[in-house]
Design a protein around this nucleic acid. Structure first.
Lengths: 344, 344
DNA sequence: CTGAAAGCGCTAACAG
DNA sequence: CTGTTAGCGCTTTCAG
């Protein structure tokens, strides 16, 4: 009388079928064999479940087991092409493995990152894949100390022994510069931001080393991060170009900088478009149809996503166990197009 | 002896402070006043909570209340610029309102959509914001019947009374075409896909009406959806252009089609680039720095995201109550650039 | 004003 | 081979 056996719950099923919840739970979790439950009973339960389309309540399951089967992927900005592409691939792998992915954007801001991490910890997500903002070292260390799976992406903290998957920025940058140099460019500018994180530092370093190796002058424009997509940022680039009329090539360290740079060139230095050498970090389909087509340092998205998930899944399997951190460094590929061709 | 009061739980706090869990729960939920709990006790609890940095276990909370504070935003492809931009805005609003957002991509595929919806239902998400694939009408109706909040986005099912926020595709398309016509283009092609959903149908219809209104011939290329980003798709466009040498303008109904179209023009009809009128649906920053800059039908992303969330939040507030469906139709804006200028 | 206690739906140790 | 039962951490009714 009192029981609400109509409800789709293990209890209801047990009541309906005249077995115990344990039995139902076991067959539900595929432990029928292991627990030596009779074929007949197993089948009866399975059939009934099929019949009423029963699905276990994951929330209850999570509460009980402590695992939520959710991982978060925190990036700088999910609407940035590079990150949304990554996200798309990660999504596929994760769902395949029975995990859901929560995406969120931290805008490379520490406060926001911290808030987001706390938020998700409360929700007991199983793990974090993070493109970290500059100042959250301690938080990351704390997560690790709590044995919560974390893997960093795109940039990392050299002082911290945390799993990460990144690319060899310095080398990629060096190669890009060397390519320009070999194509006779002698006055190469680097346009970058003031972000003092490993990925940007590496790109800067690669540039400097290349210039030094070939005894070429350096011309670096460092834009405040805030100006990355603003009018202000464009003006700074314009000014920089005006003040350095001898430049014959420009290397942009991220895709949004490149967009701004191309806009500036188009507006204020239209003749330069086909005379100047141009190389960008981060590829984009549109660079293949631009005129000129733009040479780009292309990051191995697919591979990054795969390694990220592989690393995360390994951690998830054994979160308690200490392990030597996996530091995965992938190679970027220079895709040579028209914009860096030898000019006459 | 038996109790594990060290644990961060209401129980632990109650034990530690020598009060009951009820009391703690009440002050936690801001019902101290309402339940007339003494100031002293309230403060004591609050302070202690602050001290140990206690955060309630959301899972348990959800299990108990039946609300997960999670909504899902299902799009066609999260790596598509249009959707990732939308997602970014939605994310902000949602987090502000205390909701988390799960993003996922259905690839406009029914099977995948259905699987995803079931997956999330099990996880008892509070609501669904969906860019629906063509054949999931019944599922959507079922969700509504179950009183689960759903709001459709970008496209909808005319036969179903479900909240949605879309743009007036037909009108937007008509305006774009009219603009071309007024700029003296007389042989305008429409490049679209075979997707038979409202958004595409509307764009096609707008084109047809405009051509009819001005007694101009129609030239429609309908590409299979599968070819949207393939080489095959490019070849089809190339062939279409070869077979219709009289075309003087092309209107692409989505951004990926435009990318392909521009690639084809660049490769096979370089002279056409500046002679042909070009208009695209879906704006993109890169269109502002392309040469020529590309005229685009720009969808009001910010507004769409806001209306979506507003509608969702309203449903969330009162999921049980029947209500007249909100059918929000926004206006797109034609951003005129060089590619559709009058040609001599 | 405060406490006891009944679950939400599920898992798994323990006891037949 | 199957059933009983004790929680997971929280909310909320009902009694003091």
């Amino acid at each position: 009388m009192k029981n609400k056996s109509k409800r789709n719950s293990i209890k209801g099923i047990a009541a309906e079928l005249g077995v115990s919840v344990t039995t139902v739970s076991f067959v539900l979790n595929g432990k029928a064999k292991e627990k030596r439950i009779s074929e007949a009973v197993t089948k009866k339960i399975l059939d009934y479940i099929e019949l009423i389309g029963y699905r276990p309540n994951q929330l209850a399951q999570s509460l009980r087991t402590g695992k939520s089967k959710i991982i978060v992927f925190m990036v700088e900005d999910i609407s940035n092409h590079f990150f949304s592409r990554l996200a798309r691939i990660i999504e596929d792998i994760a769902y395949q493995k029975g995990y859901k992915v929560l995406f969120c954007s931290n805008e490379n801001d520490d406060k926001k990152s911290l808030e987001l991490i706390d938020l998700f910890k409360e929700r007991q997500v199983d793990g974090f894949m993070i493109v970290p903002s500059p100042g959250i070292q301690d938080k990351i260390a704390a997560l690790k100390a709590e044995k919560i799976p974390v893997v960093l992406c795109d940039r990392y903290f050299p002082d911290l022994d945390i799993d990460h998957v990144i690319i060899d920025n310095e080398k990629a940058s060096y190669c890009a510069c060397e390519h320009l140099i070999k194509n006779n460019f002698k006055n190469i500018a680097l346009i970058t931001t003031d972000v003092r994180q490993t990925q940007m530092l590496g790109r800067l370093e690669g540039y400097k080393k290349a210039m030094a190796a070939y005894q070429l002058p350096t011309n670096v424009l460092i834009l405040p991060y805030k100006e990355k997509t603003t009018l202000q940022g464009k003006e700074s680039i314009t000014k920089f170009f005006y003040e350095n009329p001898d430049l014959d090539a420009a290397f942009f360290t991220t895709n949004y900088l490149t967009k701004n740079g191309l806009a500036v060139i188009k507006e204020s230095f239209p003749n330069a478009l086909n005379k100047m050498g141009i190389v960008t970090f981060d590829d984009n389909e549109l660079f293949t149809i631009y005129t000129p087509t733009i040479t780009a340092v292309s990051q191995p998205l697919e591979e990054m996503a795969k390694e990220l998930m592989k690393t995360m899944l390994a951690l998830l399997k054994n979160p308690k166990v200490a392990h030597p951190p996996k530091k995965i460094v992938l190679k970027a590929k220079l895709v040579v197009r028209e914009s860096s061709k030898v000019k006459e």
